[in-house]
């Protein structure tokens, strides 16, 4: 069982991801915006983060840029981005994101990726 943080301001999507990953037996935390995600990442240790890029307060990229390196090294970071945001993708990669999933995605695709990387 891994400790996973799901950060997405879109409630429906967040619930879908939570449900999908909980079914795999993981322990899930949620964050509703970038600031909450950053807080939780600094307070607790996670094996994996699913981080939406377009969020209020702080974008996913800004969250990454504010995180100390040691946290980024011990946490697998999956970014959710819209297809068009290629430039952001490049920056996110620089800032420590490891995997990208383009919205819209199929839940099965995310499930497979999580199984694969953990």
């Amino acid at each position: 069982m891994s400790h996973i943080l799901i950060a997405d301001d879109e409630e429906i999507l967040r619930m879908l991801i939570v449900d999908t990953l909980e079914d795999l037996g993981h322990d899930i935390e949620e964050a509703e915006d970038g600031s909450e995600a950053l807080e939780k990442l600094q307070e607790q240790s996670f094996d994996l983060v699913v981080l939406d890029h377009m969020m209020p307060e702080r974008t996913g990229l800004e969250v990454l840029q504010s995180l100390p390196d040691h946290i980024k090294e011990e946490t697998l970071i999956i970014m959710l981005t819209a297809k068009a945001q290629d430039a952001d993708r490049e920056a996110a990669l620089q800032a420590g994101a490891r995997y990208f999933v383009a919205k819209p995605f199929s839940p099965a695709e995310l499930e497979a990726l999580v199984k694969d990387v953990l």
């Binding site: 999507l13 377009m54 919205k103 819209p104 995605f105």
Partner: peptide, 17 residues
Amino acid sequence: FHNIKGTAGTIGMLEVH
């Protein structure tokens, strides 16, 4: 619309997306 687009596509509502 940005959120609807992203979410609807993922949960299989293609037209809405």
